[in-house]
Every structure is written in C-alpha cells, then in structure tokens.
Amino acid sequence: MVDEIAPETVAALLDAEDPPLVVDVSTEAEFALGHVPGSINVPLSNLVSHLDRVAGAEHVVTVCPRGEASVQAVRLLSAYEGTEDARIESMAGGLAAWDGPLEEGLDEGHGDGEEGGDDERR
C-alpha cells in the first residue's frame, strides 16, 4: 500500500523549516494551469528518466490532479536507487482536494527535466 498524506498536512509542512520536495507528476499543460507553490513538474511519463531531480531528497510528496498518478509515482520512486532512504508519499485526493493557494506557469526546469526551454508555449 502506498503512503498518502492529507493536503492540510502538506500545507503545514510547506511552512516548516525543512519542507518536503513536492513533485507534481501532471502533464506540463496541467502543471502550468495551477500547482502547489514551490512544486516541481516531472510528468509521470518522464519520471524514471529524471530521477536526478528527486534523488537525495529526504521527504517527497507526489501530486497530480486527482491523486491517482501520484500513487503510481510513489511506487516508481520507491523502487529506484537514490530514493530508498526518502519518505515518499502521495497527496491524497490530488489538487482536487487542495484548498491552499495555487501557482500558475512552469517551474524553471519544467516538464521534461531540462533547464530553461521554450517559454513561448505559455
């Protein structure tokens, strides 16, 4: 069974001294429409090829629109070297259950795991 974390708990942890790494596994287009502040976007389809963006984190919370793909992401991340010591959880209910603020746009290393990119798409 995959560990899940309540959206309210994620919100509280984001204000803590050592917040978790929030990895949004939505598509780039979904991420640009709105995501948890400070989260990074690594679409589920690209997750395995971009584990370097997650490796070394002590606490990872995966997020997606409804909480289904993020459960798959937890399973994938838990199976790879570099994440074996991390606490990895899926945000229960996904963004549909998130009552906190949302950021719009892309993170600096958006979607495909590459820095920069063509921001004309927005």
Results as ranks from 00 to 15, higher is better:
Ser49Leu: 07
Trp98His: 08
His35Ile: 15
Ala97Cys: 06
His110Gly: 15
Ser45Gln: 05
Glu120Pro: 07
Glu8Ile: 05
Met1Asn: 12
Asp18Tyr: 09
Pro65Gly: 07
Pro43Ala: 00
Asp3Trp: 00
Pro20Asn: 09
His59Ile: 00
Pro7Leu: 00
Met91Asn: 06
His50Trp: 01
Arg121Ser: 12
Val63Lys: 00
Gly67Tyr: 12
Leu51Gly: 02
Gly105Arg: 01
Asp15Trp: 10
Ser90Ala: 15
Glu84Cys: 01
Val71Ser: 03
Glu4Arg: 14
Glu17Gly: 13
Ser45Ala: 04
Thr9Trp: 02
Gln72Val: 11
Val2Trp: 05
Glu114Tyr: 04
Val2Ser: 06
Ala92Leu: 07
Val22Asp: 07
His35Ser: 01
Val10Ser: 02
Gly93Ile: 07
Val2Gly: 01
Glu58Cys: 00
Ser39Thr: 15
Gly34Cys: 04
Ser78Asn: 07
Arg122His: 05
Ser70Cys: 12
Val23Gly: 02
Thr9Tyr: 01
Asp15Ser: 15
Glu108Leu: 04
Glu114Lys: 03
Gly94Tyr: 10
Asp119Gly: 14
Ala32Trp: 15
Ile88Gly: 06
Asp3Ala: 10
Pro43Ser: 03
Ser70Gly: 11
Ser39Asn: 10
Thr27Gly: 14
Met1Arg: 12
Val23Phe: 05
His35Val: 15
Val36Trp: 04
Val22Pro: 02
Gly109Phe: 13
Met1Val: 00
Asn46Phe: 06
Met91Glu: 10
Ala32Cys: 14
Gly34Gln: 03
Pro101Lys: 02
Leu77Asn: 06
Pro20His: 09
Ser90Asp: 14
His35Cys: 02
Glu58Thr: 13
Phe31Lys: 06
Leu21Pro: 09
Glu104Ala: 06
Ala29Leu: 09
Asp85Trp: 04
Leu51Ile: 13
Gly100Leu: 01
Phe31Asn: 03
Val48Arg: 09
Gly93Val: 10
Gly38Cys: 08
Asp15Leu: 14
Asp85Glu: 13
Gly34Asn: 10
Ser70Trp: 05
Leu13Phe: 05
Glu120Gly: 15
Gly82Thr: 06
Ile88Asn: 07
Pro20Lys: 04
Arg122Val: 15
Ile40Lys: 02
Ala57Leu: 01
Glu104Pro: 14
Gly117Phe: 03
Arg121Pro: 14
Leu44Gln: 04
Gln72Trp: 03
Val63Asn: 03
Glu30Val: 03
Pro7Asp: 02
Arg53His: 11
Pro19Thr: 05
Tyr80Leu: 08
Glu89Ser: 12
Gly67Asp: 14
His110Thr: 13
Val42Thr: 12
Glu8Cys: 06
Glu103Cys: 05
Asp85Phe: 10
Val71Met: 08
His50Gly: 09
Ser45Pro: 13
Ser49Asn: 03
Val10His: 07
Val25Gly: 12
